[in-house]
Design a protein around this nucleic acid. Sequence first.
RNA 1: GGGCGAUUAGCUCAGUUGGUUAGAGCGUCUGCUUUACACGCAGAAUGUCCGGGGUUCGAGUCCCUGAUCGCCCACCA
Length: 907
Amino acid sequence: MSLSGAFEKPYDPSEFEEKRAQDWIDKGFFASQPKSDTTHYTIVIPPPNVTGDLHIGHVLNNTLQDILIRWQRLKGRETCWVPGTDHASIATEAKVTKKLADEGINKRELGREKFLEEAYKWKSNYGGRIIGALKRLGASCDWDREVFTMDPDYHQAVLQAFVTLYDQGLVYKGHRLVNWCPVSQSVISDEEVISEERQGHLWHISYPVVSPTPGGPTAVEVATTRPETLFGDLAVAVHPEDERYQGLIGQKVRVPVCDREVPVIADTYVERDFGTGVVKITPAHDMNDYEVGQRHNLGLLNVMNPDASLNENSPPAYQGLDRYEARQKLVKELKERGLLVKTDNHKMVVGISERGHVPIEFYLSEQWYFKMEGLAQLALEETRSGRLRLLPAFTEKIWEHWLGGIKDWCVSRQLWWGHRIPVYTCTSCSKVHCAVEAPAACEACGHVEFEQEEDVLDTWASSWLWPFAVQGWPKNDAQTQKQMEAYYPTETIVTGQDIIFFWIARMVMAGKHFTGKLPFKSVYFTPIVRDSKGRKMSKSLGNSPDLQKLMAEYGTDALRFSLVNQIVLGQDIHWKNESCEMGRNFANKIWNATRFLLSHAEKRNISSAKCTFESLKIPNDAVATWLFSEFCQTLETADKALSGMNFATYSSKLYEHLWMVFCDWFVELLKPVLAEAAETNASVASLKRADELLQFALSLFDGALRLLHPLMPFVTEEIWQRLAEGRSSQTIGRQLWPNAKELTARYEPDPASVAHMRAVQGVVGAVRAIRGQYSLHPGLRLRVVLPEASRDRFGEHVAAMEYLSGSQLHFEDALPQVVGAALTQGTEVFVDLEGHVDAASEVKSVKQRLQKIEQVLVGIQKKLSNEKFVSGAPESVVAGARAQESENLAEKKLLNRVLESMQSQGG
RNA sequence: GGGCGAUUAGCUCAGUUGGUUAGAGCGUCUGCUUUACACGCAGAAUGUCCGGGGUUCGAGUCCCUGAUCGCCCACCA
């Protein structure tokens, strides 16, 4: 293929990527079909919120899934990556509600049906965005299988799961204090409450004693962080053994402002050392107070509305005020009445609603719950038995802790966007029916009218079914059976650790409970991506990278590479946009390496199309044997790293192989070979060698591209398309991943060739270093002397070594007059510096080096003279130390010889 | 209050079961339009491996302890 048009430097990904991403999908390269054999490899995507935007965390976890899927696809497995989106009940409802409010429309006035219409409109406007972004990222999902958690089939699955649990007695309705989000005006689960430390106050308020005993106190001082709830106080509590308040127990005190009389009770819940040792008890607005209230039969007094404003149980002046306005007003009034003793600053932990971003209220209401203990046991058994593996391993401790102390799951939400709870109450006899379809007639009285529950289910009570519901569960038709057989259970889940309880644990429970199978074999928790200062990415900080811009500026491959390359299992990533440079430079590097190979192939009339990895032939040549050995090692590392989900090991090995090995050394070694063959009087042997090496290079490069493809799909595809004409109906993504066993059975890797090449590199490096030491111009051809005895060893590489080091090699034992000397891999290297360097400065340099060597030798010899080391350490370590000693001795001897020679020359 | 993780070059981080003279990328410095690539090539400099103890012939690695940062869990109003 000729180097025209689309093969310019530098590599410009923005020219290709978008088109390529669409082309892959159009040609159906990612489509999967259930097969009757067992080659399936399935991953289900963690469905992003339907109205969400792609953020860098998505890039990370979807890139990792894509790497696994593309890797397995290259290995010839029938891969299926199921994409989709989550309806995200509370998050979406909040967005739609806000949008309506901005337009002056009140959600409740609009009514349920109209609201849902609006929500679907919103979904159709924004729901495609994140899917589009994932496609742009190159995610090789089977896009024909996209599922939305409110699709009709999925809805059926959610209802069926609920009904099944109900029939099994695992669903109940409970009347208790719940976490209430005043913004969404719905209950939320414990997991949706985020504890945050906040600076608050501890107000000391005086409660007058109703009938003080003579000489006794006339008031008690109560400490509280939430004064506005005092309208709901039903008692004041002290510790039963607190000597200060013995006389008060059983008396009555007057709640300030509302002037209600409440008893002083004794309960061990009270900490004597905290505050004043006197606590106001507000059973309807605090979990602990609720418990205390239960113990003392205090009853309940709710003083708030669902939006956290004060209700009719508060004094008229406070009714309708928001809780914080009420607090201010009350504190002021207490001060005026002289009942506020003091105000202390106080740090406390406040429960914040994950979606509403405001402190939650404890609120008394009736809600639906799932019984979790049995389900939690199912999940625990899977990790304890080792059938389910969590990475990083320490997450298993978190898992154990949560599941061990699990509480029942409050699944009802006072929302409209979601799966409405399938419970129907007969309007005549009040019999409760739970069924997927509304019953035709009441089982008890035959009446035909029902009222369905108003509430919808927690989002996670639908997404916990994801791995099997996407395949059609619980339907039992032929297609569903076939799909369940092929694609369930899946392999692995890749996601953030933040949803370990929300989603991962519950999927395991649901999988075991409803299908009897563990839904995946492993879970990989990705690192959290933070900004360069270690702060969480957040909208309010505006520190999230603009991914569209990054992809346009550096390329998607660059983004993928740079992100993956920074992964450390179990640790956060500190992200800088500039780190994309590494990936961009890498993509450019291999792009240009291709330009080099192809231009020479053209010159030598070699068809790159014929040089596929399948046609790899290894010429009988030290350079080829060496590169092949390196490649085999890279392949082994890549396979092992990906199997163990060590993604950064995989990325850095490929980087090293392609750049440091293939480009820096192999291509450079190839150049003099090609140059020799290009001479007019080139020998037949040199022509043959050039052609063989070039063909070998192209074939091996094809293999290396495949190894890199899962990580950098775009640039590898662009290159692969240019290696042969007429590939547009194919993709590199469906070629074969090199098979290590077959490969090494055909050609044996040769460790000696690697050692041999290291010697060549050592000599070249030594000359370069000496050149650098004196800043000698690279164009200056140096005279280099190697010992006569090494002639055979380096014979075939002389031309290459001369080219790489910019020198002329001579094999002789006489030293140059002014000489830069080095010892590398047992070879003495002498660079003739006569006329370039002043002898005195080289003498000085040699003396310095000798000093260093002396120091090192002292250390080694001390170790070697230690009897315990010699007898105690493994043989290889002792041998290593001895080798080190002799090497340093040899270098010392060499330098002394050089020194002597130069000093005698200099007079 | 419990549990977990981190601390290695100016910055971001590697460093397998303890074993040569601790590495990479970026940045810095030097020299290069060497005909694939300046998004490049060649070379160089830079470390109290957080502090303090201990185990060991040998510790960045294991143990104890202290400090700092971060995360998770927990009902002190």
